[in-house]
């Protein structure tokens, strides 16, 4: 009987504690602001610079998305016209412009080039692209490349950056796998 009473008392104590803890927690006003969070290694800008092999003015294709993948705004794409039947030397640059000065993400890609690869898809008046760089294992990376145009007309250049793709691969995205960091298509006019 004594035991039973003790248990009962304990129960009462527990309920009391429970009641008061609820009251306490409810009253405690921990309005400390949570820490701000930015997507890591965000890429805001993709710039493709195409310089005619034979010399001349470089052409710039740019896609810029200031609010990232979570933001509603679509990337703003600006392009310039290409010349017909020309071979261009291309370089691609990725920037994080949420930081000041802008961070050059391409450097990171170059540093970990065995874990990255750019894939280029062409159509219309652009006939093909070819890799002009490789990683230490001799596999293509795609920070630099050449691009050839045909006769005048409409064309598209698709750019995809895969992180940790299978290397070597057969040049298709399906075979390469990995995670997509960048996927943009530029519609251009070849004149």
């Amino acid at each position: 009987m004594i035991k039973r009473n003790t248990i009962l008392k304990n129960i009462k104590k527990v309920s009391l504690i429970a009641f008061s803890s609820i009251a306490l927690i409810s009253c405690s006003d921990d309005d400390d602001a949570p820490e701000e969070q930015n997507e890591e290694e965000v890429i805001t800008t993709v710039i493709v610079k195409l310089t005619p092999e034979a010399g001349g003015t470089a052409v710039t294709l740019m896609s810029k998305d200031d609010d990232g993948a979570d933001g509603p705004n679509a990337p703003v794409i600006t392009v310039e016209n290409l010349a017909a039947n020309t071979i261009y030397n291309g370089t691609i640059t990725l920037l994080n412009e949420t930081e000041s000065p802008a961070e050059d993400i391409t450097l990171e890609v170059a540093e970990e080039d065995d874990d990255h690869q750019f894939f280029y898809a062409v159509s219309g008046a652009i006939s093909n692209t070819e890799y002009t760089d490789m990683d230490e294992d001799g596999n293509p990376v795609g920070i630099t490349f050449t691009l050839s145009t045909t006769d005048a007309g409409a064309a598209t250049l698709g750019v995809t950056l895969r992180h940790e793709p299978k290397k070597p691969n057969d040049g298709t995205l399906t075979d390469a796998g990995g995670a997509t960091d960048v996927e943009q298509t530029f519609s251009v006019t070849v004149e």
Binding site: V46, S63, D65, A74, P75, T180, E183
Partner: peptide, 9 residues
Amino acid sequence: VEFSLRGAF
């Protein structure tokens, strides 16, 4: 869909 540099979602 919404577009970003990673494609359309």
